[in-house]
């Protein structure tokens, strides 16, 4: 099965000499939910811009479902739906018209474009707003409008560039549900995001890009398995004994009722509980101090700096 996206030695040097991409290569398999992560200016948006023809590449090649963009870009574009970072629709146009027109640009006959627009505007909770000028929508609604617009031609590959930026938690969760649903239905999804818990919750595979180079690439599960230590925060029912020590573990007291424990690779959390029971500490809750992916991301980006 051909990959949904195959990038080989992709490079981009902007006029002025800034090298945004230094020959990156990666593959996204069909049906994948893939995260492209990196700090600001790492090259994520440049990569996406090249895939959807808004940025001209300097070198390398891109294939979308086996279609080379240098050979048949219109053919490749038919497979792609793009949700950019910035709002890029006419603020004076009606919500419904924006989605229907986009269908027209992909060659959908008007009745079918209208039918699809209704389907996706309803799915994203915007159908009631179809006759409103798009400038009247809230920020979260505008983001959902761009998703509906990107889906109207039912692309096999959906690329979302920070789709939940500035969206409230409830709305973010409902967008996650929606994206998982269309991924389950067969759409390959590539996501860039600054919310690493979002990538961990949604994506199966990941590429971390920094200074125009891929610094990590693989399945999120494998990457997390390589983490050498994790820090857990515990809350106790009563006041903590003074001093609080656990044999074999580094313990840091946060306040009278909570403390942090570092668990190295090879150690088990059961041993922590055994030690705590022996010390008479009754635990009411336990959580990771930081998002695990975030820990790895920071480590990779810092080591590359």
């Amino acid at each position: 099965m051909v990959p949904a996206l195959k990038i080989d030695a992709l490079s981009k040097t902007y006029p002025g000499g800034f090298q945004a991409l230094k020959g990156i290569s990666l593959q996204v398999q069909q049906g994948d939910f893939f995260a492209l992560l990196g700090p600001n200016g790492a090259g994520k948006s440049t990569t996406i811009g090249i895939i959807c023809s808004l940025v001209a590449k300097t070198g390398g090649s891109i294939q979308v479902f086996g279609v080379d963009i240098d050979v048949d870009f219109p053919g490749a574009k038919k497979h792609i739906g793009i949700v950019p970072q910035e709002f890029n629709f006419n603020m004076f146009e009606k919500v419904g018209d924006i989605v229907v027109n986009q269908g027209g640009y992909y060659g959908l006959p008007l009745p079918l474009a209208r039918q699809r627009a209704e389907k996706y505007l309803r799915a994203l909770g915007l159908w009631e707003k179809r006759d409103n000028a798009s400038r009247m929508l809230s920020g979260g609604m505008k983001r959902r409008l761009m998703i509906a617009r990107a889906l109207v031609h039912e692309p096999r590959l959906l690329i979302l560039d920070e789709p939940t930026a500035g969206v409230d938690i409830e709305m973010r969760r409902s967008m996650w549900d929606f994206l998982q649903e269309i991924n389950r239905a067969g759409t390959t999804i590539i996501l860039t995001t600054h919310y690493l818990e979002e990538a961990e919750a949604l994506c199966r595979n990941i590429a971390i890009i920094n200074h125009g180079e891929i610094v990590e690439y693989g399945s999120i599960r494998d990457l997390l398995r390589r983490l050498h230590r994790e820090v857990f925060i515990f809350d106790s029912a009563g006041k903590l004994p003074e001093p609080l020590t656990l044999r074999g573990f580094e313990v840091r007291r946060v306040d009278d009722h909570s403390f942090e424990v570092e668990v190295e690779k090879g150690q088990h959390v059961n041993e922590v509980f055994e030690g705590l029971s022996a010390a008479g500490v009754r635990v009411t809750s336990m959580r990771n101090r930081a998002n695990r992916l975030e820990e790895m991301f920071v480590k990779l980006v810092e080591s590359a700096a």
């Binding site: 959807c52 023809s53 808004l54 870009f73 219109p74 053919g75 574009k77 038919k78 792609i80 793009i82 950019p84 910035e86 709002f87 890029n88 629709f89 006419n90 603020m91 146009e93 924006i98 027109n101 986009q102 640009y105 992909y106 060659g107 617009r149």
Partner: peptide, 14 residues
């Protein structure tokens, strides 16, 4: 100016 031209540029429209 409002970047809506990108709607056309990303599409397969010649």
């Amino acid at each position: 100016f409002n970047h809506s031209v990108e709607e056309l540029l990303v599409s397969p429209t010649p």
